[in-house]
Amino acid sequence: MSTADTNVVKLADLPKPQDFRLSETEREDILHEISQYPEARAASIEALKIAQRRLGWVPDAAIAEVATLLGVSTAELDGVATFYNLIYRQPVGRHVITICDSVACYLTGYEATRDALIETLGIQPGQTTADGRFTLLPICCLGACDHGPVLMIGEDTHLDVTPDTVPAMLEAYE
């Protein structure tokens, strides 16, 4: 087993809370979002974000509860959750790193930046560090094509990232 393998948390091995229940505050926040739209289903993404805040991902039990509030089927809401790439359907690290792998970023140094992340974190894309600190995920576009390579750590966007800036950038995230 390589050193990198010892740094990896297998997401499938983490417990999945089958008894997840929305808190009263989460329920109120979702109902508030629903009130902002002419149709409840239009609040699907915002409702999923609210459900995701607590655990950092959306378990099946949360899908069922949110679907009931929205008046949609669990299959329909799961379709939204799995389509929207910032809703996570399995456990992720405390900080999710999304690195743009679009053509624009590819042409401006994506591969070297990705490799620096892999080396620094000791994981491959789609994996989480053993300490649960970071998950590394590719994403098709972050909308800052004139500043590639681009990545996000949580909600923070980092522009013009180079392999040399990766270690210091990651240190800022405990």
Rank of each mutant, 00 (worst) to 15 (best):
V166A: 04
A81P: 05
A172G: 11
I139V: 12
H95A: 02
P125G: 04
Y106C: 03
T165L: 13
D156L: 02
P91F: 14
W57R: 04
G154P: 13
Q124L: 15
A144F: 12
I97S: 00
I97D: 00
I50Q: 05
P38G: 12
A130G: 08
L136E: 00
W57K: 05
D13C: 02
E33S: 14
F134M: 07
D78M: 14
H32S: 12
I50P: 04
P17V: 09
A51D: 02
A104L: 08
D160N: 14
T113A: 15
V72G: 13
G154N: 05
C145P: 00
G122C: 11
C145R: 00
I34K: 11
G79C: 10
S44K: 03
P167Y: 07
L136D: 02
D13W: 10
I45V: 15
V103A: 15
E39L: 14
Y37T: 06
T74H: 12
T74L: 03
E33D: 13
A47C: 09
A116M: 06
I97P: 01
A51R: 03
L70W: 09
V96S: 04
I30Q: 06
D156A: 15
T25V: 11
F20E: 11
A61T: 10
R94A: 11
A75Q: 14
D160W: 12
A12H: 09
R21Q: 15
P163D: 04
E111P: 01
D60Q: 15
P38L: 08
S23H: 09
R41Y: 09
T135R: 03
L136S: 02
H95E: 03
G148I: 02
S44G: 07
D29E: 13
V103H: 10
P138F: 01
C140K: 04
L137M: 06
I153C: 02
K49N: 08
V92I: 12
C100W: 06
L31F: 00
E174H: 08
A75L: 14
